[in-house]
Design a protein around this nucleic acid. Sequence first.
DNA 1: GCATAAAGTTAAGCCCGCTTAACTAAAAAG
DNA 2: CTTTTTAGTTAAGCGGGCTTAACTTTATGC
Lengths: 148, 148
Amino acid sequence: MSKSDQFTQAVRSWVDVSTHRSMRGWSHHAKATGLSMPQFSIMMQLYYRGACGLSEISERFEITNAAASQHVDNLVQAGLIERTEDPHDRRAKHIQLSTKGKSMIEKGINERYRWVDQLAENLSEKERERTAEALKVLTEAARKLDQK
Amino acid sequence: MSKSDQFTQAVRSWVDVSTHRSMRGWSHHAKATGLSMPQFSIMMQLYYRGACGLSEISERFEITNAAASQHVDNLVQAGLIERTEDPHDRRAKHIQLSTKGKSMIEKGINERYRWVDQLAENLSEKERERTAEALKVLTEAARKLDQK
DNA sequence: GCATAAAGTTAAGCCCGCTTAACTAAAAAG
DNA sequence: CTTTTTAGTTAAGCGGGCTTAACTTTATGC
């Protein structure tokens, strides 16, 4: 195996393991809160990318405005997001997480990453330092890829 | 920020970035092949865990035998999996990927991980070596967690 | 050997996410 | 100021994934 292959293989293995972990926690949380996958995805997106209009939601998920509007409506009725009129353009809506919705997502994120703490316990101080360094390098490189 | 927090944060950031990448490729491939998400998940599972009976599928995905049977039926008709009688227990079925199905998944996996190669190009030889080492440690630790 | 349990299948029906189509209201363009 | 474009909503309807219920076939337990 060449050195390049070793790198590729190491990344693949780790991504497999961590994605599996992450997804399992994710879908578990969605189920526990009674949210469907699309609803949950919209919440997550509002959390990470902040408030937006309805069209942005339909574009990002590649669904029609009608579908997005229906999802948003359900989430508003559940008290998880707020839909207000955009003061600058009264056609548009300003959609954002409510306090309740935000804390629900944050709780989910914490649960979703609890295994990382367990992982930390299984490593020595030195290992934690070295892996943290390595992951920073990787994350940075991946972010650069996104920008291109 | 304590050293432990630094580790946790580094892992979280990387998992966020890589999961996002991985999932995007994943859902793209599912769409491109015309498979629904449950169908695709069943295929992936057959690829990684090997042949199994129908009940194992319904247990793993927490659906009824009826639902699993319907999915399997569709995949059989698409020529992606094979459903044969188990010679040892004629009630049971032996479900496995067909050649066509297997190559479809492998093609998907390669596409899904192409960004890792791009990542490799953005790193120096030394960085690749060090990160590969670190990821091996992490993957190993994560696998141990699974076993508990 | 007969009752019971286990592995799958099939059919009927529900719910949900999505689409199209028709609509309202506001902004932009001419 | 009228026309066109843009943002969003609502209603009707399709399709898919799932469940329950009834069934067949094969294995297992007294």
